[in-house]
């Protein structure tokens, strides 16, 4: 019976993925992508991966949505919507010049599908490494196998992932957002908007902290909490309190790197004491993981809100230049 739900979700997810790539208008693509995020989150739940579902919900519904809307705003003026002829011509010229990229994309997609099929074919009997992770769980200091794998058994991967977010921020710096535009924001004039932002800020903070703490025993953890706390930065920036851009340089740098740095220092400290990289003593593992997760969540939150704030400022700056010329 529950096969109906699974089948419907699978069809919906694949259909939305295709449509959000192939839709003729950029706006359609972006909003279909939001629906795709919802379908994907539900699909992850049906696959019994609640951790991934929470991350998908937070990233797709929150962070990516905001980034996409901002990007959509920056793209909107290039093609005047009223002028149908210009738009048709534009899309025509696009299809011609896009032949080679499309060919590459399809070839890459085919290759990826082949690799995915091979990987599915080769899945070992008995669910891979689940049993191995389960037997070592008491030594990891946490009760949730996902957190144990992410922050203890495979801590090196997680450490690199946090580096990837930081590199994304560096790319935004390189694209022109050097924190140069330290404009003090104007607090929003709309009283309701201000109250909503002020109400949801503590709610987001508390729920993020809850997810961080619950990560020890159930689905939740640093990345989910980081995205929720990052949403606070984004909300405050939108409400006219751009504290990320206004905070002293050293404080911003400290917040951005504290997670990565503490993780690294701790890893090498235990290596110097005679263990492997990121090998914590089992007695302190629980509390160490909680500290690492908190600092990681702070860094992720700072990085995500800085990415949004800088991209938004770049877009507004470009608009001002365009409107004056």
């Amino acid at each position: 019976m529950s096969l109906i739900i699974d089948g419907l979700l699978a069809i919906l997810a694949i259909y939305l993925a295709l449509q959000s790539l192939l839709a003729p208008r950029l706006t359609q693509s972006v909003f279909l992508f939001f629906a795709f995020g919802l379908a994907l989150a539900l699909a992850w739940i049906r696959l019994a991966a609640v951790d991934v579902a929470i991350t998908e919900a937070a990233i797709a519904a929150g962070f990516l949505g905001v980034l996409f809307l901002d990007a959509l705003r920056d793209f909107a003026p290039r093609i005047p919507a009223k002028n149908e002829a210009v738009q048709k011509q534009y899309s025509k010229s696009q299809t011609k010049s896009l032949f080679l990229p499309r060919l590459t994309l399809w070839a890459g997609l085919g290759l990826f599908l082949l690799i995915a099929l091979e990987a599915v074919w080769k899945i070992p009997e008995g669910g891979g490494l689940t049993a191995a992770a389960g037997t070592l769980l008491p030594e990891s200091g946490v009760e949730n196998p996902v957190t144990a794998v992410l922050l203890n058994f495979r801590a090196y991967d997680t450490w690199l992932e946090m580096g990837v977010i930081l590199i994304g921020l560096l790319a935004v710096f390189a694209a022109g957002g050097k924190m140069a535009y330290r404009k003090p924001g104007v607090a929003s004039q709309d009283p309701l908007l201000r109250q909503v932002i002020l109400f949801f800020t503590p709610v987001l903070f508390l729920f993020g902290a809850f997810l961080l703490y619950i990560g020890k025993t159930g689905p939740g953890g640093a990345f989910q909490a980081g995205v929720l706390w990052g949403a606070i930065g984004i909300l405050l920036h939108l409400g006219g309190w751009p504290f990320i851009a206004l905070m002293p340089r050293w404080l911003g740098q400290l917040l951005l790197t504290v997670g990565l740095g503490f993780f690294l220092v701790l890893g090498f400290l235990f290596m110097a004491a005679g263990g492997a990289l990121f090998e914590y003593p089992p007695a302190y593992a629980g509390i160490l993981i909680l500290i690492i997760e908190t600092l990681a969540a702070i860094s992720i939150a700072a990085a995500l809100s800085a990415i949004f704030a800088l991209l938004n400022q770049i877009g507004e700056e470009a608009d001002e230049i365009e409107s004056t010329t």
């Binding site: 939001f34 919802l38 989150a41 739940i45 609640v50 579902a53 929470i54 919900a57 937070a58 519904a61 929150g62 949505g65 905001v66 809307l69 901002d70 705003r73 909107a76 003026p77 005047p80 919507a81 009223k82 929003s188 908007l193 909503v196 932002i197 949801f200 709610v203 987001l204 729920f207 997810l211 619950i214 689905p219 939740g220 989910q224 929720l228 949403a231 984004i234 909300l235 939108l238 409400g239 938004n312 877009g315 608009d319 409107s323």
Partner: peptide, 29 residues
Amino acid sequence: LLNVAITFNVLAILLVISLVKVWKNKKGE
């Protein structure tokens, strides 16, 4: 699963506020 629902819930307002604020001064269409 209720935690997933709350995640959607507390972030639902974010898109609306970003639309309202980001698109506010957009001249034109």
